[in-house]
Design a protein around this nucleic acid. Structure first.
Length: 178
DNA sequence: TAGGCCATCTGGTCCT
DNA sequence: AGGACCAGATGGCCTA
């Protein structure tokens, strides 16, 4: 039958070409699909990363809020906040250490019964093991002169005021820990 | 205008 | 496989 021959074998050479064309179209489609899939994953990852950084910044803001600053102070930068926090912790530890040397702990604090202290292990406030801030880096040199009578006059308020005068960026105990 | 700080994007690596 | 974390790149904004 001529009609049959026309339908089945009308273009014996074009069939492979058509198959190639179809395969090419299919591949382009899957590549486009892959691209959109990758793109949507990227967008989601960007979103998560943005969120993560926002949380990090929120934590940094919280840290800023507990550092002693004056209202008219300009906002500390991130690196300044971290260095300042390090110095601040160091200063507080020093204050505690000196206070410990000058004043014997009250009887109530000597035993197991520690006073309730906001958000911290109360025992550690009076523990003789000095807070590890100064030793966080081996080269940090904490003032190690023995306590004198002048040291006993080293009131926390005074020490904080003096500490506050330290530039958070360059001087202070944390400066050596970069 | 240079330099500092920051937010965001991106690809790589590790972990669950 | 997907999420978390990290570090480098990039561009915008601000200040000296």
């Amino acid at each position: 039958m001529p009609a049959e021959a026309a339908s089945s074998g009308a273009a014996p050479e074009s069939a492979p070409r058509e198959r190639r064309r179809r395969r090419g179209r299919a591949r382009a489609r899957t590549e486009a699909l892959l691209h959109t899939l990758k793109r949507s994953r990227r967008v989601k990852a960007n979103d998560r990363e943005r969120n993560r950084m926002h949380h990090l910044n929120a934590a940094l803001d919280e840290l800023r809020s507990v550092l002693p600053t004056f209202p008219d102070d300009t906002k500390l930068t991130k690196i300044e906040t971290l260095r300042f926090a390090y110095n601040y912790i160091w200063a507080l530890s020093e204050t505690l250490r000196l206070a410990e040397q000058c004043l014997p702990p009250p009887p109530a604090f000597r035993g197991a019964a520690a006073p309730p202290s906001p958000g911290s292990d109360a025992g550690s406030w009076f523990s003789s093991a000095s807070p590890s801030a100064p030793s966080l880096c081996a080269s940090a040199s904490a003032p190690s002169s023995p306590a004198t009578s002048e040291d006993c006059a080293y009131a926390p308020a005074e020490s904080l005021r003096a500490f506050r005068a330290l530039p958070a960026t360059s001087a202070g105990p944390g400066a050596v820990c970069r």
